[in-house]
């Protein structure tokens, strides 16, 4: 479990617009890497290229390499559906399936991929909900609709759903931006626990959050509107926040920017 990600020379396009240019970075296994930067700097786009979700939008394309251990995710013959089973994703807004119960939501990834067998599923559902720190809150109402939970619980349900298919890597796109501080804390604690099993990449607008949860931080920026986003620097989180090597990073972190 838990694999290393090696990105090199990565550019992504929406139609003819280049959203990110020449990104190269490495994410170590069993670490949390935070992507920070101003809106529109392409950090979410970079994240979505890591499990080939970028190409779900029509007219998009990607250049460059994303190595998962030694396999190029954009190499010939790679099945994007299989990539997404290996690299899971949690989105900005909690998005449980509205027609499904809590149990069915967690089991969805397995069921929709053809796993039957109630006892197998029961085990995975409990393990995943425990893993997402949600089991004690929902164990008595597994058959109730997932939409009936609070926002924070829904987001943990989505995390349980993502880890139920046992991915190697977990991508999180601003997972706390729609949540209150208490739910945010619950998710951050969870990230700290999940780190022991998964490689985690998290996009966040909240710099304190990046400082709290991540081992390494990558700062992205754009030169101006319509310009592609670029990676300014990536380093150990304490170093990025205390003593960044780039002026732009320091400006952004200290709030002098924009």
């Amino acid at each position: 479990m838990a694999k290393r990600i090696d990105v090199s020379g990565l550019s992504a396009y929406y139609g003819s617009v280049r959203a990110i240019e020449d990104i190269s970075l490495t994410v170590e296994p069993r670490t949390v890497t935070a992507f920070i930067g101003p809106s529109g700097c392409g950090k979410s786009t970079v994240l979505r290229t890591l499990n080939r979700m970028h190409e779900v939008i029509p007219g998009t394309r990607v250049e460059g390499k994303v190595l998962l251990d030694d396999v190029d995710l954009y190499g010939p013959g790679i099945d994007p559906v299989a990539v997404r089973r290996t690299v899971g994703m949690v989105f900005q807004r909690p998005n449980p399936f509205p027609t499904m119960s809590i149990y069915e939501n967690v089991a969805a990834g397995l069921r929709l991929n053809g796993v039957r067998g109630k006892s197998d599923l029961d085990g995975v559902v409990e393990h995943s909900l425990r893993g997402a720190n949600l089991w004690n809150e929902v164990k008595d109402r597994l058959n109730k609709p997932g939409m009936g939970l609070s926002g924070g619980q829904q987001q943990r349900l989505c995390i349980a759903r993502a880890i139920a298919v046992s991915p190697e890597v977990l991508l999180m796109d601003e997972p706390c931006s729609a949540l209150d501080p208490i739910s945010t804390l619950a998710i951050e604690d969870l990230i700290a626990q999940l780190k022991s099993e998964y490689t985690i990449v998290i996009v966040t607008h909240n710099m304190q959050q990046a400082a709290r949860v991540s081992d390494r931080t990558a700062f992205f920026n754009i030169a101006g509107t319509g310009e592609p986003g670029k990676l300014i620097e990536i380093d150990e989180t304490p170093r990025i926040f205390a003593n960044p090597s780039q002026r732009a990073t320091e400006d952004y972190i200290t709030g002098r920017f924009g």
Binding site: N51, F97, R161
Partner: peptide
């Protein structure tokens, strides 16, 4: 149907046709 639901399903490694029929 919200695109977010389709994305949630794709991100679980569910093929498009199953996403359409099951979600």
């Amino acid at each position: 149907v919200s695109p977010a639901l389709r994305e949630a399903s794709y991100a679980l490694g569910v093929p498009k046709w199953r996403t359409i029929t099951k979600v």
